[in-house]
Amino acid sequence: MTHSKNIRRSSGKRERLAAAAAQVLHEKGVEQTTLADIARAADVPVGNVYYYFKTKNELVEAAIDAHMQGLRAAIDALDALPTPQERLKALLRDWVEQRDVTAQYGCPTGSLASELDKRADGLDTAVAKVMQHLIDWAAEQFRAMGREDSGELAVALVAAYQGISLLTNTFRDPDLMTAEGRRLERWIDSLT
């Protein structure tokens, strides 16, 4: 549930446009973002955007896919840690490291999900899959800790993060996320 401020210039134009779409949509929102904004962030001539994406919705879909790819990469790195508790706490630390960006713009995936929920074009279900993937992974971690209520705990963890992301953004206070991250680490420790 993170995004890179720097779009890699070495990647292909399509990938740069998708990464730029994820970044700009996070910063400006779907309705305020133009194709020119995304082209500028990707360092691609605006006319080239149409070669890869015919509509703004296709760019939004690409941004959602970029969120999923980023989540999968993060999960792969977390899965290298030896215990489910360490994996969950490392996830929390990753979230807390993004606190300044979250204070400014909110959670990249959560903000997009909230905005797309107001539309009737199916993009809301696409972004929900990203959230579901995170919940499913967290449930696996809680299950590996021997918890029969792993699904409920996973939802509680993601809900706590989304809630603190909203408050961190609303009050522009990154310290709120830091404090909640510490509380959630203690909560994870208490479940063993």
Results as ranks from 00 to 15, higher is better:
residue 191 L to C: 03
residue 58 E to I: 03
residue 30 V to C: 04
residue 89 K to S: 06
residue 67 H to W: 12
residue 91 L to C: 02
residue 163 G to M: 05
residue 48 N to Y: 13
residue 8 R to Q: 09
residue 103 A to F: 06
residue 104 Q to E: 15
residue 94 D to L: 15
residue 178 T to F: 14
residue 30 V to G: 02
residue 23 Q to T: 04
residue 58 E to C: 02
residue 72 R to F: 09
residue 149 D to K: 10
residue 51 Y to T: 05
residue 67 H to P: 01
residue 62 A to H: 11
residue 166 L to D: 08
residue 125 T to G: 01
residue 123 L to Q: 11
residue 66 A to R: 15
residue 101 V to A: 10
residue 20 A to D: 12
residue 46 V to T: 12
residue 145 M to I: 05
residue 76 D to R: 12
residue 19 A to Y: 02
residue 170 T to Q: 10
residue 108 P to D: 13
residue 153 L to R: 12
residue 10 S to T: 15
residue 163 G to P: 04
residue 144 A to P: 00
residue 79 D to V: 06
residue 161 Y to Q: 09
residue 138 A to C: 04
residue 51 Y to H: 11
residue 167 L to C: 10
residue 93 R to A: 11
residue 52 Y to K: 02
residue 12 G to P: 09
residue 26 H to W: 15
residue 111 S to Q: 14
residue 136 D to Y: 05
residue 12 G to Y: 09
residue 24 V to Q: 12
residue 170 T to H: 12
residue 83 T to E: 11
residue 31 E to A: 07
residue 81 L to V: 09
residue 139 A to S: 08
residue 185 E to Q: 09
residue 51 Y to R: 04
residue 156 A to N: 02
residue 191 L to N: 05
residue 22 A to I: 03
residue 76 D to G: 09
residue 41 A to W: 09
residue 137 W to E: 03
residue 12 G to D: 14
residue 109 T to S: 14
residue 27 E to T: 03
residue 129 K to A: 12
residue 152 E to L: 12
residue 77 A to R: 15
residue 102 T to Q: 11
residue 39 A to M: 06
residue 22 A to S: 09
residue 156 A to E: 10
residue 182 R to V: 10
residue 67 H to S: 12
residue 58 E to W: 01
residue 121 D to K: 04
residue 42 A to G: 06
residue 40 R to Q: 13
residue 17 L to Q: 04
residue 53 F to V: 01
residue 147 R to Y: 00
residue 166 L to C: 05
residue 1 M to S: 14
residue 156 A to G: 07
residue 97 E to T: 13
residue 51 Y to D: 01
residue 151 G to S: 02
